[in-house]
Amino acid sequence: MRKGGAKIQEAFYIFQELCEKYTWTVPLMNGMAICYMHMGRYGEAETFLLEALNKDAKDAETISNLIVCDLHLGKPTARYMSQLKMSHPDHPLIQRSTTAESAFERAVQPFERA
């Protein structure tokens, strides 16, 4: 998928084949959702991610993928950010978000004093 282009479609077919041949697992659902996101089909990606979340409400990758997907759909992400922060406080997405919030607060401070 990282290579993009036709490789995304190829990965999509591989995930689809695995899901049809075996059982729908949370990692396979996430793989399908990521393929959809790379193809710009965020609504379909969200459907897979919500199904994965129903199977495992604490899966860090599902929650983080939902955050990214919902950002692209223009939907609020606070619920999923809180959920990820509570269940996986050391997740890279939470760490980056915390770092960005801190940087923003430092950047705003000189203007608040004025």
Rank of each mutant, 00 (worst) to 15 (best):
S64L: 04
K7Y: 10
G5Y: 09
L53N: 07
N30R: 13
Q16W: 06
K7T: 12
Y42Q: 08
N30Y: 05
A33F: 02
Y42A: 08
T25L: 08
L49H: 03
D59R: 14
T25K: 08
T25W: 04
T25Y: 07
F15T: 05
N30V: 15
L50E: 15
S64R: 03
G5M: 11
Q16Y: 08
N54D: 13
F15K: 03
D59M: 12
L18V: 13
Q16S: 10
Y13F: 11
K21S: 07
A45H: 06
Y13K: 15
D56P: 00
G43T: 10
V26F: 01
G4P: 04
E17M: 13
V26D: 09
E61I: 02
E46R: 14
N30M: 04
Y22W: 13
G40L: 05
E10W: 07
P27C: 08
A45W: 06
K55Q: 14
Q9D: 12
E46A: 11
L53G: 02
K21T: 03
K7G: 01
M39R: 14
Q9L: 14
Y42I: 04
Y13M: 11
V26M: 06
N65I: 04
F15D: 03
T47G: 02
I63V: 09
A45L: 03
K7I: 05
K58T: 15
G4Y: 01
F12W: 09
M32G: 09
L50V: 14
M39Y: 07
Q16N: 08
A57G: 13
S64Y: 00
